[in-house]
């Protein structure tokens, strides 16, 4: 990490803005937190003006609170009281929004425990607050951590779910109908064509499609995420679908399929998607680019 130099005047000014004296936070600890944040943000040492601009943009009060809670054995009592009063209800509310009925409450509680630093390694308290660097608000950061843990838990539970029986599902329901011999071929063609067509979209278009179809966000939620008006989201989704349709049609014609066969290919994915899964298509696009590892704190 590049070395970051901060002058005492800047630290003093930022400490005042952060109201660090509320929690009797040592200035040295606060300076260390500022340096860690800057080290993380800049790949090359910034000039003084750029550094000051960056540090001034941080959520300084939240950073001071996080420092006070995470510093020393047990942190600062007043800081913890403030955190419990302000942030814990938000954390529980976020957990309830993720899993209505309280199913994510234990996630919130375990997160709270990790923030406190119950994981005592070699006599040193390790609080999760060390990962907060003030670029976002503390509430948003807590929501991100909670969301990561929730998603990772759901994904690990899915891996343990038993596979469905072979005689259940649409195939079983229509077992009296003779199987369409072309269907597997058409499905495979559609899967491949869709994957290629989607890989040709911009990242933002794929993200929009993924959020709306794979993650089942509403237009409004997708718009909030992408900083778009939901009418724009709707219109952009329609545009992306049109682009994909045209691309898939071209690809299928390049496979020497006639119009009827192309219609049957599209019909395959509307009647019964079978193995077609937008999430898997997106994953396959990513796998072709670069392998990645799960990461969360």
């Amino acid at each position: 990490m590049p070395a970051v130099g901060m002058n005492d005047d800047l630290v003093e000014r930022l400490y005042r803005l952060a109201k660090g004296d509320r929690w009797a936070l040592p200035k040295s600890a606060f300076a260390a937190a500022l340096a860690a944040s800057a080290d993380r943000a800049f790949t090359t040492p910034p000039d003084a003006r750029e550094l000051e601009r960056y540090l001034t943009s941080l959520h300084l009060e939240d950073l001071a609170l996080a420092c006070a809670c995470g510093a020393g054995p047990g942190g600062n009592d007043a800081a913890w009281d403030h955190f419990v009063l302000e942030q814990r209800p938000l954390l529980y509310r976020s957990a309830d929004a993720l899993v209505p009925g309280g199913g994510a409450r234990e996630l919130a509680d375990s997160l709270y425990a990790d923030l406190y630093g119950l994981d005592d390694r070699q006599g040193e308290r390790r609080s999760l607050f060390r990962y907060f660097h003030g670029r976002s608000s503390l509430a948003t950061w807590l929501r991100a951590v909670l969301a990561q843990r929730h998603v990772d838990r759901v994904r690990s539970e899915r891996r343990l779910e038993p596979l469905p029986d072979e005689d259940s599902g649409p195939a079983a329901a229509s077992s009296s109908d003779p199987p369409d011999p072309d269907r597997p071929r058409f499905l495979a063609l559609m899967q491949r064509a869709l994957s290629v067509a989607m890989s040709r979209l911009t990242g933002r278009d794929r993200l929009r499609l993924g959020c709306y179809y794979a993650q089942e966000l509403t237009l409004a939620q997708t718009g909030r995420l992408l900083r778009e008006h939901e009418a724009t989201v709707s219109r952009q989704l329609a545009r992306s679908r049109k682009i994909i349709r045209e691309d898939v049609g071209r690809q299928l014609r390049a496979e020497n399929l006639n119009t009827d066969e192309i219609e049957q290919c599209f019909a395959c994915v509307t009647e019964d998607a079978g193995p077609l899964d937008l999430g898997e298509i997106l994953d396959s696009i990513r796998a072709r680019k670069k392998p990645a590892a799960d990461r969360s704190i």
């Binding site: 929004a97 929501r143 998603v151 994904r155 959020c211 966000l217 997106l282």
Partner: peptide, 24 residues
């Protein structure tokens, strides 16, 4: 966005964050 466009896990996390967000 380029990463999240093709990463189902990260998409799921941001979707969860959006759902957990207080109404604004």
């Amino acid at each position: 966005e380029a990463h999240a466009a093709d990463c189902v896990r990260c998409q799921a996390v941001v979707a969860a964050m959006v759902r957990a967000e207080p109404p604004a």
